[in-house]
Design a protein around this nucleic acid. Structure first.
Length: 338
DNA sequence: AATTCGGGGCC
DNA sequence: GGCCCAGAATT
């Protein structure tokens, strides 16, 4: 008897799976990537949805799949244009890795997204979750797709008190899904778990009254839904002060490209420099930008000399360069919009 | 195992 | 202000 099976003592697997799938087929939201069976499009949606909400992704998904409808279109595109279509979505390495992976699919698999776990999972940017999601949703394979929703739902339903912030915990939930997944419809099972987590079994104030698996839920039975899942918290974010230097001449602006690695790799910006007490220039205002793990406090200055390491570009050219949301905020400040 | 990597919505 | 989100790569 394995460790996971301890959680299934007196648990009605069939009722859980049957009710979950029936609920999903009945109540699921109409989302663009649910209207297609194109594995490449489903793959794109799964990459976009990593750590990103459905409502945020929808317009990006529509634009991206329209511009790059086939693997061939994405494989041959310039990275700057690809990044431009991802601009504002965050985690930019996702799309760089996606393009590299799609290029490999075009070259090695004739543009067909591989349906073998060992092949698909080794592609750039494809981890355990994305592997299970694409193989189950696009190809109907009984593979677990464990994301934050799934860990939250199953921790409550099964009474799993393992810390979901610990990397190894995911394997426990994958084992649990293997016990539960319906081989006849793995896609609806996996999506049903995620949909339930998103719509009913929410992080705070879950709507247990609307839950299709209330009858078999450990947490509902003990009123423990607010203490599950267990998740350790991380340290607080640090604040980093910067000066942004804005230099304009003859209708052109001075910008720099960020380093090829690290935060906002390869994105363009007004030169950001360590904050100084007596910055030589005219203070325009301040921009605050919050990341998950740090905060930028940016003092924006107009300066009269071109900063080092910058290039001069006109507005039309600048508009084609990918920039961060922090940079967009500085532009709005300069235009007097904030 | 811990850190890095974006941005937005919610309380 | 912290938490969470259809996570993966790097260290």
């Amino acid at each position: 008897m394995t460790v996971v099976q301890e959680y299934f003592t007196n648990f009605n697997k069939t009722q859980f799976t049957t009710e979950l799938i029936a609920w999903f087929l009945r109540e699921q939201r109409d989302l663009p990537w649910r209207r297609t069976k194109n594995p490449y499009h489903i793959w794109i949606s799964e990459i976009m949805l990593q750590q990103t909400r459905v409502d945020t992704v929808i317009p990006y998904y529509e634009r991206f799949t329209k511009r790059f409808p086939t693997p061939h279109d994405l494989a041959e595109a310039d990275q700057s244009e690809v990044l431009k279509h991802w601009e504002g979505l965050g985690y930019y390495s996702r799309v760089k890795n996606l393009q590299i992976a799609v290029q490999e699919v075009v070259e090695k698999y004739d543009g067909i997204v591989p349906d073998e776990k060992e092949l698909f999972s080794q592609l750039k940017g494809v981890g355990p979750y994305t592997t299970g999601a694409v193989l189950s949703i696009a190809y109907g394979q009984a593979e677990p797709a464990v994301d934050g929703n799934v860990m939250r739902v199953l921790s409550r339903v099964l009474g799993i008190y393992e810390d979901i912030a610990a990397p190894k915990t995911r394997k426990l939930f994958e084992a649990a899904v293997h016990q539960l997944i319906d081989p006849a419809d793995p896609s609806s099972f996996n999506q049903g778990l995620m949909e339930l987590g998103a719509m009913v079994c929410t992080p705070k104030s879950p709507m247990c009254g609307l839950c299709p698996v209330q009858d078999v839920c450990f947490a509902y039975d003990r009123n423990a839904q607010e203490e599950l899942p267990v998740k350790t918290k991380k340290g607080k974010t640090q604040i980093i002060p910067y000066d942004a230097l804005v230099y304009e001449t003859n209708g052109k602006i001075a910008i720099e490209q960020r380093a090829e690695t690290g935060l906002l790799a390869g994105m363009w910006q007004y030169p950001l420099r360590e904050a100084e007490e007596d910055r030589n220039g005219t203070l325009v205002g301040h921009v605050r930008h919050v990341f998950s793990h740090r905060i930028w406090e940016i003092a924006v200055y107009r300066v009269t000399a071109q900063p080092d390491q910058t290039v001069l570009v006109d507005q039309e050219t600048y508009a084609t360069y990918p920039v961060s949301v922090a940079q967009m905020k500085i532009d709005r400040l300069l235009k007097g919009e904030i």
